[in-house]
């Protein structure tokens, strides 16, 4: 029965989809709601999925759309109520160099990722944190694999620019 198979899909993919949405969201409760929405939508569409479909990429597609809709409705809500926008953690770009090491570098990078434009942030997160290939990312974000690659490239440039002026821990050469 399809339901048993879907239960296995939840068991296999929920953790990763939750992590993806947790990385995009500001709060754990937000990721909780969005991951539920993702899987309930997936369940409704499950019967229309072709047998040879890449289930993981398909779930990322749904999760990305759920997140995009969520961002849109949040924007509308903020505009409608003209409330003060939630204060997001600002980057301390003038901090002393020694603080920008290791752990600090990680949280700065995380903050820089959060400041990326939506599409770049999704493409970047899918590629660099969940290691999807560009074909799957293009499918998830409804663009070509080349555009997906360009989004990731632009994201890296932006992160680099945001972190400009910060000392970075030295790393060994790649090759």
């Amino acid at each position: 029965m399809a339901e048993t198979v879907f239960d296995a899909v939840v068991a296999t993919h929920h953790g990763e989809i939750f992590r993806y949405l947790r990385r995009l969201s500001w709060r754990a409760s937000e990721a909780d709601d969005l991951s539920q929405e993702t899987f309930l939508r997936a369940y409704r569409a499950w019967g229309r999925l072709t047998p040879d479909a890449n289930v993981r990429a398909w779930l990322f597609t749904i999760a990305s759309n759920v997140y995009k809709n969520h961002v849109r409705s949040e924007r509308r809500r903020h505009a409608a109520h003209a409330t003060v926008r939630a204060t997001r953690p600002e980057l301390d770009l003038d901090g002393p160099e020694e603080e920008a090491m290791a752990g600090e570098m990680r949280s700065l990078t995380q903050a820089a990722i959060r400041r990326l434009p939506l599409k770049q942030r999704l493409a970047f997160t899918l590629r660099k944190l969940h290691e999807l290939d560009y074909e799957a990312i293009g499918q998830s974000l409804e663009c070509s694999p080349e555009s997906a690659r360009a989004h990731v490239f632009q994201a890296l440039r932006k992160i680099r620019t945001t972190l400009n002026g910060h000392a970075m821990p030295l790393t060994e050469s790649t090759r």
Binding site: R19, R22, K128, L156, M168, S173
Partner: peptide, 26 residues
Amino acid sequence: RYRAIDHAIGALRSTPTPAGDAEAAR
């Protein structure tokens, strides 16, 4: 600099989500 960013991304990738959060959500 890009290598350093890549390292930081690698560290983020392997940072676990609090297990309780994911399990409660599941």
